[in-house]
Structure formats: structure tokens, C-alpha cells
């Protein structure tokens, strides 16, 4: 939370610097005023690349063969492409209010280790190591942003810094119960389909970033953006409790810019 607050303060500060008319200007010789933006609506459509969210692990136990079986699942959240679309409207001087949507969908291959008690003997567990493919994560985030335009002398250039709350909705495939098959004499086990589930959760996080655009014409241009948007949420664990999972992350990309 402290990290979130600090970033929001930085973003708001940058915005304030960007939009303020310095008081010292009154005592100095008059300088030509920078042109005020004449366009009021800004739209960006970006292809992004999201760096990997932090991997996470889950573990659970369950009764098996009169002892306790354990399994651990290590979810590898791969980096990958994301898609983002945002629009904003100028509300006061260089300050705009905007809203954006981003979507990230990736495989989260999972490494599973398990220890399953032997049916006939105490303290002689069979071990299992297995890589499970096919698990997915889907992140959908709605970002509400305060955007500050940084005045530029070059009218083809446009720079914005922005930040605000993000509303994350995440759907993550998880392993609820490890699967294994065994045959007599049961001294070893082999992987088998386990019990999987798709868990969903929503939570508010934050976003902050900067956007630089170059307009070929008055209204159409290209731009690049770099932002951080993320939060930590407690997903249902196979153990029946919860496991903290970081969603979102650093994103960078570029695409089309429109202004009207």
C-alpha cells in the first residue's frame, strides 16, 4: 500500500508540475506562452508486452492411505503480449481524465511435486514430479487515469504522464488435487489428470505511466507507452485457504494515437 501511495504521489506531482503556470513567471520578463492544446479528446490503441508477473506457488495436503499426502504447485507466469485501448478528455488546462482497458492472457505452466503415502506401509511415500501445461491466466483491467500533458515546443510531439486506480479481474487455472495413477505393488506412481479449477477474483490496484506520441498529421500519429499496473490478490488455494498472487506488471508497447 505504501508503494502504491508513493507512486500515486509521484504521478500527481508530475501532473502538477506539468500543468502549473509557474508563479515566478510574473516577475520575469514576459515570455511567449506555450501553445495550449487545442485538441480535447485523445485515443490510444496499443499492442503491449507485459513482463512476467511474479510466479507463485501453492501447496496442499490431503488424507491418503491413512497418512497425509502433500503436493506443491509452482505456477510460472510467462511474459507475453497484452492489448490496451485508452481514451481521455481534456478537462482543465493540460489535465485530462481518461479510461483504458487492457487484457493479458498467457499460459501458466505448472511444475508439480507430490508425495503420496504407500497404501501398505507407513513412512514410505512415493514421489511424483510433473510439468502440467495448459493452465491459463486471463487478466482484464480497467484503468481510470488522470493524465497530464507535458507542454512540448514541437507541435508534432505530445507527452503525457498518467496514473490512477485500476480494477483488475483475473481468471487463473489452478490445480486443486494432484492426480496420479498406481498399480500393484504401488511402489511408484505416475502422473494422471488431477482435479483442476478456474478461480476468479477482482481487486483494485493502480496504474502509472508515461506516453509519448508523434503526430504526422494534426489528428493521427503513433506513440509509445510504458506503464506499471498491478495489484496483489488472494486467490483460492488448493489447501482451502488463499494464496497471494501478483497480477499485472510492467507493460510497454506502442500503437496508434488519435486526437480531436
Amino acid at each position: 500500500m505504501r508503494r502504491t501511495t508513493a507512486l500515486v504521489v509521484i504521478v500527481v506531482g508530475l501532473a502538477a508540475v506539468a500543468i502549473a503556470n509557474p508563479a515566478s513567471a510574473q516577475t520575469r520578463p514576459p515570455v511567449p506562452r506555450r501553445p495550449q492544446p487545442t485538441d480535447r479528446i485523445f485515443i490510444s490503441v496499443d499492442g503491449m508486452y507485459q513482463a512476467g508477473s511474479e510466479n507463485f506457488t501453492d501447496s496442499a495436503t490431503f488424507p491418503a492411505n491413512a497418512e497425509t499426502a502433500t503436493f506443491n504447485s509452482a505456477y510460472d507466469v510467462k511474459p507475453g503480449p497484452a492489448f490496451s485501448i485508452a481514451g481521455s478528455g481534456l478537462v482543465w488546462r493540460q489535465l485530462a481524465i481518461g479510461i483504458g482497458v487492457s487484457r493479458f492472457s498467457r499460459e501458466t505452466p505448472t511444475a508439480v511435486t507430490a508425495s503420496i503415502p504407500h497404501p501398505f506401509f507407513f513412512n514410505q511415500p512415493r514421489s511424483l514430479t510433473e510439468d502440467i501445461a495448459g493452465f491459463h491466466r486471463e487478466e482484464l483491467a480497467v484503468h481510470v487515469q488522470a493524465r497530464a500533458m507535458v507542454p512540448m515546443s514541437n507541435r508534432h510531439m505530445q507527452t503525457m504522464v498518467y496514473g490512477g486506480p485500476s480494477f483488475f479481474s483475473v481468471k487463473q487455472d489452478v490445480l486443486n488435487r494432484v492426480g496420479y495413477s498406481e498399480t500393484y505393488p504401488y511402489d511408484s506412481i505416475t502422473p494422471a489428470p488431477g482435479q483442476t479449477a478456474s478461480v476468479s477474483k477482482s481487486k483494485v490496484g493502480f496504474n502509472a505511466g508515461a506516453d509519448v506520441a508523434y503526430f504526422f498529421t494534426r489528428q493521427v500519429g503513433v506513440g509509445g507507452t510504458a506503464q506499471y499496473a498491478g495489484t496483489t490478490m488472494a486467490l483460492s488455494s488448493a489447501s482451502g485457504g488463499t494464496v497471494d498472487v501478483k497480477v499485472g506488471g510492467f507493460q510497454a508497447g506502442g500503437g496508434l494515437r488519435l486526437r480531436f
Binding site: N65, A66, P119, F120, F121, F122
Partner: peptide, 16 residues
């Protein structure tokens, strides 16, 4: 099912 029990010498063992 796997059950447990104690044998004649008091040792705990599994029974199928």
C-alpha cells in the same frame, strides 16, 4: 480403503 491397526506386538500397521 486403507485402515490402520495394532498387531500383537503393539506395532502399528496398515491394512487394506
Amino acid at each position: 480403503a486403507i485402515g490402520t491397526g495394532r498387531g500383537a506386538i503393539g506395532d502399528r500397521k496398515k491394512v487394506s
